[in-house]
Design a protein around this nucleic acid. Sequence first.
RNA 1: GCCGGUGUGGCGGAAUGGCAGACGCCUCAGACUUAAAAUCUGAUGUCCGAAAGGGCGUACCGGUUCGAGUCCGGUCACCGGCACCA
Length: 807
Amino acid sequence: MDFKLIEAKWQKKWEETGLYKFDRDRVNKKYYCLEMFSYPSGAKLHAGHWYNYGPADTFARFKRMQGYEVFQPMGFDAFGLPAENYAIKTGIHPEESTLKNIATMEGQLRRIGAMYDWDYEVKTCLPEYYKWTQWMFLQMYKHGLAYRKEAPVNWCPSCNTVLANEQAQGGVCERCGSQVTHKNLNQWFFRITAYADELLDCIDKLDWPEKTKLMQKNWIGRSYGGEIEFDVKDSDLKIRVFTTRADTLFGVTYVVLAPESPLVDCLTTDAQRAAVEEYREKSAAATEIDRLSTTREKTGVLTGSYAINPINGREVPILVADYVVAGYGTGAVMGVAAHDERDFVFASKLGLPIERVIKGAEGQDDALPFTQYGVMVNSGEFDGLASEEGKKAVINKLASMGKGCMKTNYRLRDWLISRQRYWGAPIPIIHCEHCGDVPVPEEDLPVRLPHNVNFTPDGESPLKKCEEFINTTCPVCGRPAKRDADTLDTFVCSSWYYLRYPDSKNDKQPFDSDWINKMLPVDKYIGGAEHACMHLLYARFFTKALRDMGYLNFDEPFLSVVHQGTILGPDGNKMSKSRGNVVSPDDSIIKYGADVFRVYLMFGFNYIEGGPWNESGLDSINRFFERVERLVKKCYELAFKDAPLGKAEKELNRVRHTTIRSVTNDLGNFSFNTAIARLMEYVNAIYAYEGGVSEKNAVFKDCVRDLVLLLAPFAPHVAEELWEMLGMKYSVFDQAYPVCDEKATVPDEVELAVQINSKLRGKIMVATGADKAEIEAAAVDAVKGALEGKAVKKVIVVPGRLVNIIA
RNA sequence: GCCGGUGUGGCGGAAUGGCAGACGCCUCAGACUUAAAAUCUGAUGUCCGAAAGGGCGUACCGGUUCGAGUCCGGUCACCGGCACCA
């Protein structure tokens, strides 16, 4: 078989006949199969891309053969940092490099032989797409889900520019190596926390990997506790702290503020000012991961002010320490050294008092720090209360004093969407001196990204320096005003693209709600596990927000999610240009064709796990195809008789149906490797039959026909060719996937292993359908020599597998 | 550091708590061939043994169970994410 010829032949035929055009009239049978779209980086698809898209296409084809109207679109997540960095380095405009990369990738994606319907393609960097991304922002704004506040960015004082976390690894600028610090900027946020409860409570209903659901739950991180207000001595200021352990309030020996907290300025005494300023500067250089590390040395300084514990009036010092972060809770914590690990270490280091207020149960080791629940002591009227009740009692008491309340807190933070970069969708807001922040009227969208912009890093958002972009008039008062110079986080673009695909050409609205409500939710979403917390959560948030605005009638965008693993370079590292370990599929495809490569990727790895590249089995797939082709040819060369099934035929037919059953199950679970193993065993069984019988029963032909059908989703070009060789009508993908006849899978008798304890002692043949007593009797009879006169205590029969005799 | 995951022959990888290593690669032997390639057949975890057979084996330590790769507790190693890579 000449793979090059047949690939070209069938791809052309598929295109000419419009085989994969989505039939909108069959929307009631729709199956929305979505693969995460690609970032158009570099020039070529590597083996990893094929790994993402080839097996996913096999799944989509399988669904099609099961009778679904499969919608499988493809597009590009085209805005982002790499194109901009590439432009800074080479001078090639991001638009040029991105569109060129997309064109290359489109061609390469076609070679995979996937059944994408390219009519629905989206590219997020085109105005006809980002117009609606901006529209999304405006809806969020109008519904109170977008707001502006000060937030820190990574700042390189030497390059005078904002850095992405990726560019500031280890706290060092990747361009110049200087120490990265933080700088506050006024930036836009989406109020994702407004949906924290729903995002959390709906997770259990989703058919997603359990680990992903768990990670998302922990990411949202709901905790129930209380907010407690501390007065500041000789001041009107108040400090509010969040705690899940109000039962330890009597043990507070100090209060800590995050260095970024605005209270720090007001609370620092003159005597402490120099020390506090120095400390704040130092902690501005630390990364958040470092700051939250439990093993990092705890540091902190006194502000010189004192807080008053509302429960007992005790004065405790107020400190600044960077193990407290501004973003979580209130940015202030009460220090209970005796009952919290971090507080204990911190207090020990700084010589702050440590006072026990919780006792463990009788006989329990309750050495300090004792962080479990126990019984309150040294806590006045609350002594003797268990932690659970104590927490409530303390908060209730504080509430009656106006000093506290119950509070639910989330680890989830609002989503910062402003980027001080060029290559993104401009934020459709106009800043007017008289009218404040004014949204761009919807009819004025898109706010076009200007082409001629100097985006070399010099301390300003690139768009700020583009006069014709930044200067505009206020849509409300008509006076001169400035556009927002920032662009949207690319996660905003990818939070709604699945809604755009089915209606990608709509120029009146982002999508037609009636149509989208029929096409969504996505039935199967396939992509990397690295998106478990951010992209998947953002997309869920968008869906829920748009639902509440009345644009959608469903709650969740992705009913079922599957993560594929990563194909690493042969050295076991992530493929990257800089490591020089990128595996190109080109050589293999020239040698063997796309189908061999696709099938090898599915056979050689566990799809969910991935692994280091290793091509030692590629040849075996080629061999496998040749074996199948030879069987197809045999259908013409051999003589057949229509006769009842003999023993050999029955066995062959049994293997046929068990194969259909397992391949169908395996495809449903994305266990492509075991599915192909079953197909290979099936081929071996057909060969064994063919070699052992002189005159072939007609069942042989049926078996070969089913083999081609079973193989079709895996190797689409080869299967079309074989289907034609069998004299069948185009196309194999209009055929139904074979269905298992359960009756045919039942053998006449089964072999059971019989063992005594863990020692294997023998095997017995038992007629199918034998009852438990018969099996037990046969098993005891088979091993009675080994029982050494001992009585049989218990017999455990594992159906179809083994009989375990306990003597 | 925190959250989540993974760990099985020379290799890729299979195993609803029930015969570990399916299927394939590599290697070896045999058939066919003048020869080679291709193809076909067989062997192939490891140790002892000529063989029959037996011992040991799923990162490490411990536990639950008639029975553990699988469940539980701990250790180590590696991978993903940690909010401006996408």
